[in-house]
Amino acid sequence: MSAAVLARGLAAGYGGRAVVRDLALEVAPGEIFGLAGPDGAGKSTLLRVLVGELPPLAGEVRVLGARPGSPALRRAVAYMPAGYGLYPDLTVAENLDFFATLHGLGGAGRRARRAALLARVGLAGVEGRRAGALSGGMLQKLALACALVGAPRLLVLDEPTMGVDPLSRRAFWALLESVRGEGATVVVATASLEEAERCDRVGLMREGRLEAAGSPAELARVPGVRLLRVRARAPRAAAGLLAGIAGVRAVFPVGARLAVWADEGLAPEALRAALAARGETAEVEPARPGLHEAMLWRLAAEGAGDGP
């Protein structure tokens, strides 16, 4: 089966200035693909190209085999922009009905679809409430319901869980899984690498480029080094001691603990002994790096971000 999203040499931006540059991307049908990266990395710009909202400046893009924004894709691709873009002065039902009508639904079919979608996202019973009066989590659910109204084959979401509470976030991801379970492909941007681990595959974006893509496990693998977690009596003083120990490559204080990247050969016991020799009793245990930890290590290792 051909790719759900395919891009080659893609450049996109505003006023002729490229925000996304020379980007290659392939998303397989039926997968949940995460786009992770800091603000300004080009995630939103790329998503806007995929939904046909922004014409690319250069390169080739195919979405479900067609040019983004073509009439057939406007039915097959749904978009949930950052901030959702719903009408705050319209009610839950009115918002949903509006988008349903744009997708050609009317009468009993529209009513049935509305009831089914609201039940599915957990908003049954608040049909009459204004969207502007909903909590962040409920608004996010309504936005998803509006996106699903045309039964899309590709769902494109821009930081959908930004700032919502953990319960709503879990419920939202469960919904995404169920949408994918029905055969749809999901492309979701997120600024949180912890959240990106929920995706089947993740693309790491930086300064307009896709730096790497793969499963979270692949991307979190860092050859040649290991992550150790140190809990010391005086963590901030211990950071200085650790930096002077042979085999320690980087030290990151995290509250009462320290995340220590060390040569693969440095055993936890050896580090504990080295600390003890410097007068610090500490607990040292091996830890498994997630996407966030691995990315932090890579950025620190290449000395990124400390000069214009």
Partner: peptide, 13 residues
């Protein structure tokens, strides 16, 4: 909010 992992770490430090 919205910064890369290294910038976040440095900010906390």
């Amino acid at each position: 909010s919205g910064v890369d992992p290294l910038a976040r770490q440095r900010l906390w430090e």
